[in-house]
Design a protein around this nucleic acid. Sequence first.
DNA 1: CGCAAGATTGAAGGACATCAAAGGGCGTGG
DNA 2: CCACGCCCTTTGATGTCCTTCAATCTTGCG
Lengths: 232, 232
Amino acid sequence: MSEADVKELLWRNPLFMSLPDAALDEVLFASKLRKIPAKTTIFHQGDIPKEMVALGNGIVKVWQMRSGGATATIHVLGPGDLIGATAVFGRLPLLATATTVTDCVLLSWAVALTHDLMERFPVIRLNALGYVSLHAEELVQRLGEMATERVEQRIARSLLRLADHIGLAASGGVEIGYPLSRQDIAEIVGTDLYVVSRVLHDWTDRGFIMAGRLRIILCDRERIEQIATEGR
Amino acid sequence: MSEADVKELLWRNPLFMSLPDAALDEVLFASKLRKIPAKTTIFHQGDIPKEMVALGNGIVKVWQMRSGGATATIHVLGPGDLIGATAVFGRLPLLATATTVTDCVLLSWAVALTHDLMERFPVIRLNALGYVSLHAEELVQRLGEMATERVEQRIARSLLRLADHIGLAASGGVEIGYPLSRQDIAEIVGTDLYVVSRVLHDWTDRGFIMAGRLRIILCDRERIEQIATEGR
DNA sequence: CGCAAGATTGAAGGACATCAAAGGGCGTGG
DNA sequence: CCACGCCCTTTGATGTCCTTCAATCTTGCG
């Protein structure tokens, strides 16, 4: 990956938008680039983060191991997303573990350096505030859904979000852009893989989706949106 | 309420901590103070906020009306908390309605003014970033709980949070500092008032709490924490 | 005292979780 | 290249937690 490519990554990152070119160069110079394989843990739940990480390429899952052995997936991140940002910005311990799902390209900055950059280039802090605020609003939305909606509805919402966030155009619809098992979906919506299997099968019969092994294509977005909002 | 009192409010507010005295005066001068009665709506779900609001005194409930008629309570705010902060900082529409539970004293700043103050006093923006980050982490935690835990466990967690946040010392324990019905708790944890009633009654029998009409006192914090973490 | 709002309690039903077992893809190694 | 084995998926049966409905009881207040 060339320096120009990395600069392109930065340029499109929500944190560094509207940054003057000279400043961008400095951020670039201060960054550390690394590639890591799938199923590698970047941050561990409970740790104090030592660096701020931006995802250049690949998919990262942010999840919690909870008492009783259950695991909850908090977020599925794609290119451009920040990892552990709230912990770094708030100087807080991490509440979740971040693990790569696919091979990934990461950009990182040591915590002190991150704060230093924000101090020197106020636009970055402005962007950070906007990013975290947006993130918080999404969490509010999901909390409301979790509190009031049924499993089928929540599955619909999750798939729509995944499609919008990391979806790929496919023949006959939008495909979720990474291997996604029934278990994975279950951990996102807070249920078990059996319920997910039944729901997806039902939707397949009705022609809303095409579901394969580790693979889901949304065919009829309208109908899925209908399920997401109306519940049936 | 005297000017000195208001300044005291600001001084303790998470957004204006570590602010030089002169700057604090300016913030104070730019602020608008108002008192509003209980059960008044401050922000409406879906609106674009016109001002940033800090809660000086009283209790405010932040809640969503959801399709199907269900309502979910996102947050119960007490003195010092910000209302609609993420929407203002992220220039986003509000995802929830904010309604006063008790009579309240509010401090507010027009949106443009808020951004202007942050621009001129970078410490405020730094504080804002920390505040929103902390808020986001709490939401992550609650999302994980909602996804994996049973109702009784979630009730325990809610009561502990309420006690820590707006609890008052009472004879025999900590009392939740405002009128709180079974229905209110149900909307916080995502269930119905009947389940809440049964659980609270059970806890009363076991001596963990004292539950009255619109009134709850936590007697045995240890045991409630145990329920919150272990599930029984 | 009587009313209204909150709280309790029982019964019945439904959505979901759990357990068990069998049926496919897909990669790997013989 | 085929067969084996692993992992993902499906499907049924069963149990339970929770929701819903209905009715009664309590409490505080006008």
